[in-house]
C-alpha cells in the first residue's frame, strides 16, 4: 500500500539536457527552498525564515514562486520570484514614485501599473554544476512571460544586484535595467557588495527591456547543454 515514487534515474550522458519548468507542488517548492538554503548558507552564511526576517542578522525571506531547472532528473538550479512583497520595496526603499518616474521617462505610464511588481531573486545553481551555462539558461528562462506574468498579473520587473551582475548578466543579454536607487547597507550583503561593486535596485519594463525571444520563450521547455565551459555565471546571482 505504501508506494514511494521511484526516482528518476537517467544515465549521465553528454551532451545532456536541461529541463526548465515552474514549481507547482509542495515538493517542488521544498526542493527549491532547500537548494537555495544550502547554497546561500554555504556562500553567505545566511539562514531563511518565513516569519522573522532580519537582513542585519542574516535572515532572508523566501521567494513566493520558483522556476526549476532539472538535469538528469536532479534539481540543479532555481530562480525565485517575489510576488507579494518585493525585496527592493521592502528593504531597498524603492517606492511607487520611483517606479512611476522611470515608467514615465520611458513613456510607459499607461501601459504598466506601478503597483504591480515582481522581482527575480535567489538565482542559484548547485555548485557542482557550474560551468555548463546552466545559470545562463535559467537566467534566460526567468525573464519570460511564462514565469513572470499570470492571467491577472502584468507586472513590471524589479531587480536588485551588484554592479558586476548587471555588467556580466543583464548587459550582455541585452536586458535594459533602469536605475531606481542605491541599495541600503545591510550586514547580510557584506560578502556580496563592495565600494567598487555597489548594489542597486533597478526597474525592467518587460516588453521594452527584455529581448523578445527571451520574453516569449515558453515554459516548460528542454534545452541542450553543451560541454563544460568556463565563464558560467557565478553560483548565485544576488543575495
Amino acid at each position: 500500500m505504501t508506494t514511494v515514487p521511484a526516482p528518476t534515474r537517467t544515465t549521465l550522458a553528454t551532451p545532456s539536457t536541461l529541463t526548465l519548468r515552474l514549481a507547482t507542488s509542495t515538493g517542488d517548492r521544498m526542493r527549491a527552498e532547500y537548494l537555495i538554503s544550502d547554497v546561500y548558507n554555504q556562500h553567505y552564511d545566511i539562514v531563511f525564515s518565513r516569519d522573522l526576517v532580519d537582513l542585519d542578522a542574516r535572515i532572508e525571506p523566501y521567494p513566493d514562486d520558483y522556476l526549476l531547472a532539472y538535469r538528469s532528473g536532479q534539481l540543479v538550479a532555481v530562480a525565485g520570484l517575489y510576488v507579494h512583497h518585493t525585496y527592493v520595496q521592502q528593504f531597498g526603499g524603492v517606492t511607487r514614485e520611483d517606479i512611476e518616474r522611470e515608467l514615465e521617462k520611458a513613456g510607459q505610464l499607461g501601459a504598466y501599473d506601478p503597483d504591480v511588481a515582481v522581482e527575480i531573486t535567489k538565482l542559484t545553481v548547485r555548485p557542482e554544476y557550474t560551468g555548463e551555462r546552466i545559470g545562463m539558461h535559467i537566467f534566460q528562462a526567468a525573464h519570460s512571460a511564462s514565469f513572470l506574468t499570470r492571467e491577472d498579473r502584468r507586472p513590471v520587473l524589479l531587480v536588485c544586484a551588484n554592479q558586476r551582475v548587471f555588467d556580466h548578466l543583464h548587459t550582455p543579454a541585452g536586458i535594459t535595467t533602469r536605475f531606481l536607487r542605491e541599495f541600503p547597507d545591510y550586514a547580510v550583503h557584506d560578502q556580496y557588495r563592495s565600494p567598487d561593486n555597489p548594489m542597486s535596485s533597478r526597474l525592467i519594463i518587460p516588453e521594452l527591456d527584455i529581448p523578445r525571444e527571451w520574453w516569449e520563450n515558453p515554459l516548460p521547455r528542454t534545452v541542450g547543454l553543451g560541454t563544460r565551459t568556463e565563464g558560467d555565471p557565478a553560483a548565485t546571482e544576488d543575495a
Partner: peptide, 15 residues
C-alpha cells in the same frame, strides 16, 4: 508484512 514495505527505497529524501 503489510503493505509495500520498501526498506531500501532509493528515492532521495530532502529532509
Amino acid at each position: 508484512t503489510f503493505g509495500t514495505y520498501d526498506e531500501d527505497s532509493d528515492l532521495p529524501s530532502i529532509s
